[in-house]
Amino acid sequence: MDISHKTILLAEDDPNDEELFRQAIAQANINCRVEVARDGEELMRYLFGTADQRRVEPGADIDLVLLDLKMPKLNGLQVLTVMHNAHGAGHEHAPPIVVFTSSDAEQDVSTAYDLGAVSYVAKPVTHGRFVETVQQLVIYWLGVNRRAPRRRQRGASWASTTS
């Protein structure tokens, strides 16, 4: 599957999990770009830009965020909260955020959905299932699923949205 023009932002502080993730997509010949944010702050910089070059659209060049909940500095739920508020402020085209984390605590699952995560997937421990899960996740969100088309401006004309 050619998704070389797509970018995943992997929010992951554990280099082991990062390497296992890269191996898993390589095994399935998935060739998208993978950016890694190693803590919540770095992730915020990817999404919103640095202080001197604020982004108009958070995460505009990112097609999927895979979010680990347990990260140094800002944790995953805190990042979701910020994104949630940004979305409410008119950033409709923020990338989908899929929680991909070790915990499957019910509380985390419901909070994540409340804060606008589009999916919640517990990282399997067993390698075979981990590989399978990663491949399905990436293929679905970058290959199969279609996102709503981007609107230039709010309330854009009929002609410009269908062109």
Binding site: D14, N16, L20, K70, T101, A105, K123, P124, V125, H127
Partner: peptide, 19 residues
């Protein structure tokens, strides 16, 4: 919560890299 997160993580690495 700690058990879920912190113990599963190294385990995933051990199983993953041995595989």
């Amino acid at each position: 919560y700690t058990v879920a997160h912190d113990l599963r993580r190294p385990l995933r690495a051990m199983d993953g890299f041995s595989d």
